[in-house]
Nucleic acid binder design. Sequence first.
DNA 1: AATGTTATGTTATAATATAACATCTATTTC
DNA 2: GAAATAGATGTTATATTATAACATAACATT
Lengths: 167, 167
Amino acid sequence: MLTNSRLVHQPHDHGRCIDAALNRALALCAERNARMTPTRESVLRLLWQSHQPLGAYQLQDQLATLLGKPIAPPTVYRAIEFLMALGLIHRIASLNAYLGCPFPNSEHSNLFMICTHCGSAAEVTHSPLNDMLQKASDKANFTLQSQTLELFGLCPQCSDTNNGVQP
Amino acid sequence: MLTNSRLVHQPHDHGRCIDAALNRALALCAERNARMTPTRESVLRLLWQSHQPLGAYQLQDQLATLLGKPIAPPTVYRAIEFLMALGLIHRIASLNAYLGCPFPNSEHSNLFMICTHCGSAAEVTHSPLNDMLQKASDKANFTLQSQTLELFGLCPQCSDTNNGVQP
DNA sequence: AATGTTATGTTATAATATAACATCTATTTC
DNA sequence: GAAATAGATGTTATATTATAACATAACATT
Ligand SMILES: [Zn+2]
Ligand SMILES: [Zn+2]
Ligand SMILES: [Zn+2]
Ligand SMILES: [Zn+2]
């Protein structure tokens, strides 16, 4: 079970998360001949400021503040589109929100564990789960193409005590 | 694996689907002292006209046509809210659309298999899958509360040949 | 009939997302 | 380096999905 769960749901040196994400992104761009422009990089950084999914208009606000000038929705959505195409971020359908992907290269089950209290979200890749979904699909003669798997509940921090909100 | 998959993805006597759904709904309303009003019944019927999830504004159009008078969004959303509260319908987050539930009483995993070609959607309840999700949550110290599980792919009809769209 | 409760009508607006076209910037080609 | 091209951003308008707020109507209980 490959996951960033422990990291997400615990206090940690978060600067590393951002740096690592940026480095993965730059490597992937080099590999694919894609351009990591300042706008795109800013959006990716904003999505890695926390481990909580952000909505497009939250991103818009924060981007406008960061760049010190008004930003229109298409700018944000274009960056999102670009980053999604590279697999650098995911969309959380239940939340209409976006989240940095911790392992953009590897195979994905796209399973998310999202805390209903503090909002943090961990991503999980779980082969047995994928196998089971594949089998269930086979059994129903359903040709599986993609999947949206979002779990809601309390993260370790928030279920332990009522610790309040995450850094 | 409890599912309406075979029914959904094959030609069938669809009048029965609607009648059965209505009967289940009426029984549940009686049980819960809830009122199945004409508007609510119409919305439920519309959602059972096909096995394809419908958006709120599609419902609005169809309801307006059916009732022969203009219908405002809140009317539709109120009916949706009521039917969801009773577990008679589900929301498909990836589609912003709503779908009748084929087994509103039983335990739910809320797993959907949605055809990307014809749009039909089957619901599946799968205990081993739920167990596995519960275990994965436990392992991550995540207190599972609810889940959104949506699979996209080709239904038996659409993957077999290029049969085109479903009745 | 009077009262309280539940449902619907109505208007306006919030929140999320995209279309269409103009302009600019970087990359390549000559 | 200038011209041509492709890629990225700016700008305006609008589509799509969902809810807030308040008025009216229907129903139920007494
Ligand atoms: Zn971090
Ligand atoms: Zn939490
Ligand atoms: Zn049917
Ligand atoms: Zn199909």
